[in-house]
Each structure stands twice: as structure tokens, then as C-alpha cells.
Nucleic acid binder design. Structure first.
Length: 270
DNA sequence: AAATCTGCCAACCGCCTCGCT
DNA sequence: TAGCGAGGCGGTTGGCAGATT
């Protein structure tokens, strides 16, 4: 016997949320909090199931969401965390304040996967995809032929990485990783991000995100601002969604200065 | 200019986990 | 201790927008 559906689906609306629905959900949660998702749509006057409301809130309407493209540093951190945690997106998202598991999952599937494949890495195992590649790496470690090196991974002779580095074993320090990233071509990113991340782990002691997406509760005091967008040129821009004005009004945020909206305090969350 | 392709992401589905009775 | 229900999670899909032909 199968499980009962989470809600009575007959007569319920599906698909994209409208402005009106968003407003209703925001108003209800801000006024009443979240006690039981199953009751939220009924009490808020929405023809949605509780699950749908929860998803909409956690992925889009939550005030502590960080908007905008994931930064390169965040991307590298995601890769590292994925190599250790696998597809446990909520756990990974827990390390990124204001980011949702859905967002990170989407980013992984659409961009990072591709990037890893271009680097010759298996997105699942994080190891080189083909054995011939390993043979090339072997050659790299034991040969002085710059021609082979240039063709295989594009590393100059003086920057020849150790085999275990190319194959994903963790080297030593943050400093080494950072230096490597700064001084080498893109192809060495394969091992550089490992180095960098290990250093970061040491530096930051991997403090989990207190406002993890799993939690329905939030606090304006300890969460980043939601309307931060970082474009490809790393410039922070203001990108409020349409409902933001409502939230601003309700939270009294409209008196905050531009630095807050522009995310100039975002460093403290890394 | 129109048709087709591709990438992105919001949203859904169904299974799992955990807490309550 | 077993059964049930709600919330959480990860995989997948559908539709939109921009790019390409």
C-alpha cells in the first residue's frame, strides 16, 4: 500500500507562482511564522500544497537568501565539498549562507559538471576520467619533455605537479594552493583548488552555516542580505526581486544604507 | 525573420528520515 | 515497537530566454 499523498491534490494550483500568491505566503509567514506547512496554504488562502509553499519559501521568498551568481571561490568550495560529501546538496548548502540546496544543485548540474569534464575530471569521483590521461600524468612526473607537458595539462616544466596532486590527493597548505592558482594556467586548477580548499578548511575550521536552508527559522541579525547579486565582473549590484519592497517595508529595512544592499558586508559570511 | 538548439532554473515527484503516538 | 504523518532531500522535468543556424 502506497503512502497517502502529502495533501489533497485535486483543485490545487501548480506551476509558477504568481505575485499575488507570493504576497499571500510572505504576509502569512511574517505574521504567523511557520508551525505546520500542511496548514500554511489553507490558512494563507492559497490553493497550493504545503510542500509547494515550503519550497517556494525556502528557495525564493526567504529573506536571508543571497541573490546572484555563485562566485568562483564559492564554486571551488562546492567542488571540494562535493568531493567529500557527494550529492548531499543540503549539507553542501549549509556551508554557504543564503544559498539554497536547489541553487547549488542546479549550478552543479549546469556549470560545474561541465567545467570538471573540460578539465578531464569525472564529476562523480573527482578523478581523471580516462586511463590514458593517467599515463600522460605519469609521463609528466618522470619526463622532462616540455612538449608532452604542454599538450597534456599545459603546465610548464618548472611547475610540474606531483602525480598525487594531479590525481587528487591533498597537498599541504593554503599558501601553496593560493600561490599555485595565482601563478599557473587554468589547467592546473585541477589540483590547485584542492590545495586552496584544504588551506581554507584549516583557516576557517569549516564553521557550518547557522542559517542553513534546512531550517525554517531565520534571523535578520545573523543572516546576509538577500538582494546581493555578483555579476561576472565581480561587481556587486542591487537586484531586488519584486517582493523585496514588501519585505523591506515589513522589516523596516528601507532605512539601511546602500552598503548593506550592495553587499559590502558580505565578507563576514565567508 | 523564422526555426531550431541550448542553457538555465523553478518547481514537481517520490523516497527517506525522524518524531510522535 | 510498529505505524503514521510531516518535513526534508535529491533526481528530474518543463518552460522560458537567449543563441545559433
Amino acid at each position: 500500500m502506497g503512502r497517502q499523498p502529502c495533501c489533497e491534490k485535486i483543485g490545487l494550483k501548480r506551476g509558477p507562482w504568481t505575485v499575488d500568491e507570493d504576497q499571500k505566503l510572505i504576509n502569512f509567514i511574517l505574521n504567523n511564522g511557520i508551525h505546520c506547512w500542511r496548514l500554511v496554504p489553507k490558512l494563507a488562502g492559497l490553493l497550493r500544497c504545503g510542500k509547494s509553499c515550503r519550497l517556494r519559501w525556502t528557495n525564493y521568498l526567504r529573506p536571508d537568501l543571497k541573490w546572484g551568481t555563485l562566485t568562483e571561490l564559492e564554486e571551488n568550495q562546492i567542488i571540494q565539498l562535493h568531493s567529500r560529501l557527494g550529492n548531499r546538496w543540503s549539507k553542501i548548502a549549509g556551508h554557504f549562507p543564503g544559498r539554497t540546496d536547489n541553487e547549488i544543485k542546479n549550478h552543479w548540474n549546469t556549470r560545474i559538471k561541465k567545467r570538471l569534464k573540460q578539465l578531464g575530471l569525472d564529476p562523480v569521483s573527482h578523478k581523471p576520467i580516462e586511463h590514458p590521461e593517467e599515463e600522460k600524468i605519469e609521463q609528466l612526473c618522470h619526463s622532462n619533455s616540455s612538449e608532452v607537458e604542454e599538450k597534456s595539462v599545459g603546465v610548464s616544466p618548472s611547475e610540474t605537479p606531483r602525480k598525487e596532486e594531479l590525481l587528487g590527493e591533498k597537498p599541504d597548505t593554503f599558501a601553496v594552493g593560493l600561490e599555485s592558482i595565482q601563478s599557473t594556467s587554468n589547467s592546473t586548477l585541477v589540483n590547485s583548488y584542492d590545495m586552496l580548499w584544504d588551506g581554507l578548511v584549516e583557516e576557517m575550521k569549516l564553521q557550518p552555516n547557522p542559517s542553513c536552508s534546512c531550517s525554517p527559522s531565520f534571523s535578520l541579525e545573523d543572516t546576509p542580505h538577500p538582494y546581493i547579486v555578483e555579476d561576472s565582473s565581480s561587481q556587486m549590484v542591487n537586484s531586488k526581486p519584486y517582493w523585496a519592497e514588501t519585505l523591506d517595508y515589513m522589516y523596516g529595512l528601507n532605512s539601511l544604507d546602500d552598503d548593506f544592499y550592495l553587499g559590502n558586508n558580505h565578507d563576514s559570511y565567508l
